[in-house]
Amino acid sequence: MAITITERAAKEIRRQAEKRGTPEAALRVGIRGGGCTGFAYLFEWAEGAARAHDHVIEHGDVRVFVDPKSLVYLDGTALDFVTNVMGHGFKFENPNAKGACGCGESIQF
């Protein structure tokens, strides 16, 4: 089971970590309840070190923590960083997701 991080995403995470003044900080990625379809992505800076059962993904010096439950839903996902006219930001390319909702933050499996 794995999650991949694109080069663009890794570069941006590193940049933002430095900007935040925490160059060592890892990201926490997961699935949580909520949103109009019942699931939404969790996407935030990790608090401290990885927890006991966390899955740790490394891309160069960028580290991403995923809890084992979420990994089931995120397997095969690519985390990308994109720029378009609406702005720029991160995007999950998740092969498990059947659809997204209008608010864009919920996912359907």
């Binding site: 992505y41 935030e44 800076w45 609406m86 720029h88 991160f90 995007k91």
Partner: peptide
């Protein structure tokens, strides 16, 4: 889907992604 920004720890849990359409 819309693009995401990295949140501070605990932030995603605090806000609901979107209101239920009731």
């Amino acid at each position: 889907m819309s693009l995401m920004q990295i949140g501070e720890p605990g932030e995603s849990r605090a806000k609901e992604a979107c209101a239920g359409r009731a």
